[in-house]
Nucleic acid binder design. Sequence first.
DNA 1: CCGTATCCAATAAGATACTG
DNA 2: CAGTATCTTATTGGATACGG
Lengths: 226, 226
Amino acid sequence: MQLQKLTKARGNEEKRRFDDACGLAHAMELLGERWAMLVLRELAYGSRRFSDLKHDLQGISANVLTQRLTELEARGLVRKTKLPPPAAVQVYEATRWGLEAVPVIASLGKWAARSPLHNPELRMSHVSVVMSLQTLISAERAKGFDARVGFRFGDTSYVTTVHDGALDVERRDADDCDVTFIGSPSEIAAVIHGGAPIEMIKVEGDLELAERFRTLFPLPEKVAVG
Amino acid sequence: MQLQKLTKARGNEEKRRFDDACGLAHAMELLGERWAMLVLRELAYGSRRFSDLKHDLQGISANVLTQRLTELEARGLVRKTKLPPPAAVQVYEATRWGLEAVPVIASLGKWAARSPLHNPELRMSHVSVVMSLQTLISAERAKGFDARVGFRFGDTSYVTTVHDGALDVERRDADDCDVTFIGSPSEIAAVIHGGAPIEMIKVEGDLELAERFRTLFPLPEKVAVG
DNA sequence: CCGTATCCAATAAGATACTG
DNA sequence: CAGTATCTTATTGGATACGG
C-alpha cells in the first residue's frame, strides 16, 4: 500500500513495474509492451529503417514505433546506427543479446500457431514468413537436403540455406539460388504451409526442388478444444 | 483506414488485434496482456485458487486477475475446476497446451535474467524459485547427481528430483526427501543463486548434499553494455 | 523522405470498497 | 474466500503538424 503511493510519487519514472525478481517478470519489463516483440522480430535478420518497420508492422503508428524503439534501445536490445556512406541513412539493429531472444520468441510463435483461434489467413510480413520456415523446419525431413532457396517479396529478398536439417537465413539479393520463390508473403506462406497450388506464385529455377522444399515444414498440430 | 473504422464499429468485440498471421503476433494476443504470462507461470506446477494467485502475484489487483483468468480460459490455456470433495474449492489449472508454453516462457526468463537492468533482490514467488532451478540446471554439472531435494516455503512445499541432468518438480509435502531447504523464496534464491551463506536458511537432512546441490545452477552471464 | 512532438479519444490497468 | 463494481490514472492508437 505504501509502495503504490511511492510509485505514484516518483511520477512516471518507474511507473508500472512488476517488482518481481523472476526472470520472466523482467522479460515482461523488457519486451512486454505491445508491439515490442514484433519490432524485435522485424530486426531478426538485420537492420531496418524506421519506415521499413512502420510498413511491415502494419497497424503500428509512428509515435508508438518511436517509443518502442527508444525503449528497446534504452534496455540494450536495439541499437540505432547509421549505415556507412553513401547510404548514410539511419537504421535500427538488434544487439547481440537482443538477437538471442529471437529463437525464444519464435518458439512462442510456434506454440501459439497451434491455437484453434489462430487465423493464418491474415497478412504476414516477409520476416515472419522466413522465420516460420526457420522455426518449423523438420530436421528429420530435411536430412540430406542441401540447397539454397531464395525468396523475393517485392524489393526485399532473402536467401535461405538448408543444410544439416536446419535453415539459415540472410537478407540479400537472391540471385545465386537453386530456386527462388516470388510472391507476396501471404501467397508464399499459403503455398508452403497451406498446401496451396504452387502456381499461385512464381518460381524461378529448379521447380522440382521447390516442390521438395515445401514439404520440409510440417505445421504443428492444432490443439483440441479441451 | 476503412479497417480501423470497421474495428471501431464492431465495438469492443474485436478491439485491439495485430491482424497478423504470424504465430508470434497470435502469441501476443493469447498471452500478451500484462500479467498473463506470470499467471500462467503460477499454474505451472498444478492448480491454484484465486487467492493463492492474488497472493503470489504480488501487486496484481483482483479485477485484473479475474480478467486475465477469464481471458486465458476463453483462449484455452486455463481451465476452472472444482477440487473433489471434501475440499470442493474452486481452482484454476493450466490446460495441457497451456503447460506447453511454460518451458518457452521460462527460456524467456532465462534470457531476460542476463539483462544488466535485472534486479535479483526483489521478491520472488515460490513458483519462480523452483522454476529457476528447473531452467538453470546444468546437465553437465548434474551428471550423475541423483537426489530428491525438498523445499518448504511456509505452508507450500515442493519436491524436486534431480535425475539424468534434469530437475523434475512436484508441488507436495517434502517429507521423503534426502534434504530439504526451508526459508522464504528470496532467501533460498540468495543461497542457491546468489552464493549467500547457507546458514541464512534452514536445511533438514543431508547438509553435504545441499552444498553440492546448490552448485548445479550456474547463473547465465550478464550481457555487456554494448 | 525520415522521423518527432503534440493532441485527443478509446482502452486497459490500478486502488478501493463492497457483495454473495 | 471469490470475485464485482466503481472510480481514477496510465497507456494506446490515430491524426496531424512540425523539424531536418
